[in-house]
């Protein structure tokens, strides 16, 4: 995801990583910081809060939503890998779809 950030920014998009689960359920700030450091993330990186609303609404990994920020309408929802593997194939395909929308 980080590798596509500059490309998305240049096209007028925004990449947002939301950590919805931690080791013991609710992710902590330490979990988030570790996530940023481990993946060298220089993009908007968020985590769920008490009440776990983000988890309830967005779901567990790995799901990508392309959202029109003017209307907040979800224009694409793509289910990625849920097995625990770290393939970025689905994510990259979704980034490509968003770039297509941005260039229309």
């Amino acid at each position: 995801m980080a590798a596509r950030n500059a490309e998305v920014n240049a096209a007028g998009g925004l990449l947002v990583e939301v950590v919805t689960e931690g080791l013991s359920g609710l992710p902590t700030r330490a979990n988030l910081d570790a996530w940023v450091m481990a993946h060298n993330l220089s993009l908007t990186t968020l985590k769920d809060v008490t009440g776990r609303r983000a988890f309830m609404v967005l779901g567990r990994r790995e799901i990508s939503y392309v959202v029109d920020l003017r209307t907040m309408r979800i224009v694409r929802k793509v289910l990625g890998d849920t097995s625990g593997a770290t393939s970025t194939a689905t994510l990259n395909a979704t980034v490509d779809q968003m770039l297509t929308l941005l260039r229309m």
Partner: peptide, 27 residues
């Protein structure tokens, strides 16, 4: 609001690092 295609995503109130430019590490 909803979380499927064609639905409107609710105004989630979460926390973290808003790093729109991507100029530096998010932390």
């Amino acid at each position: 609001y909803g979380s499927n295609e064609g639905q409107t995503l609710e105004d989630l109130q979460i926390e973290g690092y808003l790093n729109a430019s991507g100029a530096a590490l998010s932390t």
